[in-house]
């Protein structure tokens, strides 16, 4: 295994010690486990079944719903996580521990409980007002977006805050003295410098949204051909015993996630190399 000094990105080989070999063994074990896990899924499914499933209208509906809801949820996440991450990185916040805990709630709570909380907020508490405005959330695709957004946002905030933390604030100060207003400094200096961290954070948010199930089930319901995302489709078909549909859908979901991640990672690496 070629080891690289990660801290400065130089690809110098370093001599592995026994200590490092132990860590390598654990790491190799984890990779093997993941590979076997994914391999098992592929082994259990069949290409013929996948070909049949991807032609079914139910699959088309679930795929479309999953893609558009997860992308809208990711856009909303970006809208919230960029300013929040910046504030957390640059400002001294009174009651920091309390604020951090509040932000972590969607991470530490089981998604089902987050879903119940969302259901109460958008049902009994705000439901009537939202209905008057024509914005029904509960048991609708909008609910899917809200649930995905709620679960994905804290992950993006953490990653984006870290990206902003890694920028020397003096880079921004120099831009101010060169004539840029704070808003333009953010667009012209901070965002380009944090670009890779922001994209990574949003990819993480998107993959969380793509696979979201618990909170979606509570807020948007599990209704075939209405709020049926790919995860919901897998659950629905598992419960009625259609294993073929469920496993084929799972494999397709896995493929979508893997291909998207690989493309983005290659793109990001190319960007870094420029």
């Amino acid at each position: 295994m070629v080891l690289r000094r990660g801290y400065n990105n130089q690809s110098e080989r370093i001599e592995p010690s026994t200590f490092l070999r132990c860590f390598q063994a654990i790491f190799a074990g984890l990779i093997l486990f993941q590979a076997v896990l994914i391999g098992g899924l592929f082994y259990y499914g069949s290409w013929a079944a996948i070909a049949a499933v991807i032609q079914q209208p139910e699959f088309h509906f679930a795929l479309k719903l999953t893609l558009w809801t997860s992308l809208v949820a990711t856009a909303l996440t970006a809208f919230v996580a960029l300013p929040s991450g910046y504030v957390l990185s640059r400002c001294r916040i009174p009651g920091q521990a309390f604020v951090d805990t509040l932000l972590d709630i969607p991470i530490v709570l089981p998604p089902l409980i987050s879903g119940i909380a969302l259901l109460i907020l958008f049902g009994p508490l705000l439901g009537e007002h939202l209905t008057k405005l024509g914005l029904e959330i509960v048991f609708s695709p909008r609910g899917v977006v809200i649930a995905q957004w709620f679960i994905a946002t804290p992950f993006a905030i953490k990653a984006i805050k870290q990206a902003f933390d890694s920028i020397d604030p003096r880079m921004e100060k120099v831009a101010r003295t060169l004539g840029f207003t704070p808003g333009r400094v953010f667009c012209k200096v901070t965002l380009p410098l944090a670009k890779n961290g922001i994209i990574s954070g949003l990819i993480m948010a998107w993959t969380r949204a793509l696979g979201e199930f618990g909170a979606t089930a509570m807020l948007a319901g599990i209704t075939r051909m209405k709020t049926e995302t790919l995860s919901v489709a897998i659950f629905l078909n598992m419960t009625v015993g259609d294993l073929e549909f469920a496993i084929s859908t799972a494999i397709v979901m896995l493929m979508i996630a893997l291909i998207s991640l690989v493309i983005l990672k290659v793109f990001l690496r190319t960007e870094v190399m420029v």
Partner: peptide
């Protein structure tokens, strides 16, 4: 600072 526009150079060159 954007209206003063004084030239400013830090110890580290801080190039973009």
């Amino acid at each position: 600072p954007e209206a003063r526009r004084f030239g400013f150079a830090y110890q580290d060159s801080l190039l973009y």
